[in-house]
Design a binder for these strands. Structure first.
Lengths: 341, 341
DNA sequence: CAGTTTATCTTAAACGTTAAGATAAATTGT
DNA sequence: ACAATTTATCTTAACGTTTAAGATAAACTG
């Protein structure tokens, strides 16, 4: 059977294509009567509305907003923080009648998905420079979330400050040896300690800002914190967190405080501590970062910095839709003081 | 500045649009020399390749495949089973040079995202009948995963059989009262027990097949399993699992066996059991379903049915790409007998 | 060297829409 | 009653590509 198009419908109804188009898009351009008739008939013929591709070509819009993830889709999206962010963005976009498109940053995405969206929310430090370049080139509105790119508006939290705050709190509570379980500090697939020369890095990634906060707090409290006590964890999951935590906690002397750059890492560390028979907070204190739901339910409940990723998503989405893409917004967080420290 | 298009490029270079188009798509249609020149010049002008929308309109293809999720994006995708599936699909699609598009089933998706893909993988029981209808109408290749729709090819596991098998195994091991912690058995947002009339349902959802398996095994072993011992859990997460587990495990007499329809539910139940001071497997045995990674690491390690969702994804994607959309494939699973039962 | 093939490029017609301007009919004001 | 306005619909020209078919010139064939 021939495809049902606006043109075919128009012919069948004996009216012009414009009128059919208007029936769908601009009700004020034709009589209510005719419009109803057209809509009915189109339903009958199984016409599911004007072809989206053609419309998009003609109007230059697609009513889609993309989230440019820094990793593979499946990984980015399974992270609880990213998940909350996506949820927040989705809420706002839906209300605005826009679609959300998730773009993987890790793999070479075919151009269709990249070319289509009317705007982009770049989430996390982009790992694919060519892709970023294409997106910048597109001239479409851009916004960063949890990253900072020169010339692009952004929504962030003050990672340095809150890392400083929670580290300061923890250091005051707990004397003894300090270790950091850091997330994606360097470009390596394996858990490892930092080397001296890797201690500082011009990198704008949020994990670097957090590390700087920890280091500043340690310095201010005159507590030792060397590169060899700073672990790099390549992926934010339980598995890698446990590997690092086990390395850190089987040292002699054993650290008495773990500063963890994410709640997932902290939860992994808690489970290792339990396996090692350590009592939290007596033998060991642990703090996290992010404020994911699981952190409230853990035993002991995790002391952490609560950032509101859903709100971050909502704000970013609203800014993008409003064309408000020049500002750099910093959202407040809260220290959640619980039993783990 | 004027937009850079094929036409603009052609004019600038003094060749026809067709030639520029061929430079990108059909290298054999022009001399290598000219092609190189065109590509260089196009790079210089910041032309990022032929406009995807126009190409898609002209060719009728978008090189995108959509996964039609049954829930909201953020929820569907945070589920470990869905996550594995997506990973598998992504692998195959990437190798084939296709893009993956995630479509939310819960909300009204704007037509652009729905109209674009060249094919659909429907994941889970669709909750949005109109959307499903539109997708069917499109005439594009469809495939179901973890669901069954008449006339549409599918990739599934034998939920009935494996539920039967693991229940049979557990029932033989453990005498006493049996309870089922079921996932999405009825249409309710709250944790609750099933009513008598809800025990059987024509619904094709996988959870129903699993329940039938449990019931058949109980019957075969002449063990009691009434509606009042079957819980409905609306969302596959720790939170709801714990609510249901707490209800089930604070009964008198207490059940000694929990048949859980997902590993996440089972893990939630394990944590409740621990809170109640119950010893597993002495006081209580628990089995799960799915075989997620966490289930190996839990304490005690979870006895479950391992389905290979990544492989399921790969197979589904390959079938769809091969145009092999009529078959109904059943993938094998394995019983993983561990300490929890 | 006429006839045929090959390599290279051009022309022009789609693809299915929308938006601006044109036209004709109906309504209004004076 | 007639110009002025409003309302309803139509015509036309894009939007940026791809591709079948045609044109041209160079290279081969016997």
């Amino acid at each position: 059977m021939p495809k049902v198009t606006l043109k075919a419908l128009a012919k069948h109804l004996g009216v012009s294509v414009a009128t059919v188009s208007n029936a769908f898009n601009r009700p004020d351009q034709l009589s209510a009567e005719l419009r109803k008739h057209i809509l009915q008939e189109s339903e009958k013929l199984g016409f599911s509305g004007p072809n989206a591709t053609a419309r998009s070509l003609r109007t230059g819009r697609s009513d889609m907003i993309a989230i440019l993830l820094s990793d593979t889709l499946e990984y980015s999206v399974s992270d609880p923080v990213a998940n909350q962010l996506i949820k927040g963005i989705a809420e706002v976009l839906q209300d605005a009648g826009k679609d959300m498109l998730l773009l993987s940053g890790a793999k070479a995405v075919h151009s269709t998905a990249e070319a289509l969206p009317d705007g982009f929310i770049i989430y996390g430090s982009p790992k694919n420079p060519e892709q970023l370049e294409r997106v910048k080139q597109s001239g479409k509105p851009l916004l960063c979330v949890d990253c900072n790119l020169s010339g692009i508006g952004s929504v962030n939290i003050d990672n340095y400050q809150y890392a400083y705050d929670i580290a300061e709190y923890a250091l005051k509570k707990q004397p003894g040896k300090v270790a950091v379980l850091g997330l994606r500090l360097i470009d390596s697939d394996r858990v490892c300690r930092l080397q001296q020369h890797e201690l500082y890095d011009a990198n704008e990634a949020i994990s670097r800002r957090r590390l700087e906060g920890y280091l500043a707090a340690a310095k201010q409290q005159q507590r030792e914190l060397n590169a060899e006590q700073i672990w790099h964890i390549p992926v934010n999951n339980h598995h890698y967190a446990q590997i690092a935590a086990r390395e850190a906690l089987t040292q002699h002397p054993r650290p008495t405080l773990l500063l963890c750059m994410s709640d997932r890492i902290a939860l992994g560390a808690i489970s290792v501590a339990r396996q090692l028979g350590l009592n939290i907070p007596q033998d060991l204190r642990i703090v996290g970062f992010d404020g994911i739901e699981e952190a409230e339910r853990s035993y002991p409940a995790l002391t952490t910095v609560a950032q509101h990723s859903d709100e971050k998503g909502r704000i970013a989405a609203r800014m993008l839709l409003a064309g408000d893409t020049a500002e750099n917004v910093l959202l407040p967080c809260e220290l959640r003081l619980r039993d783990s420290c």
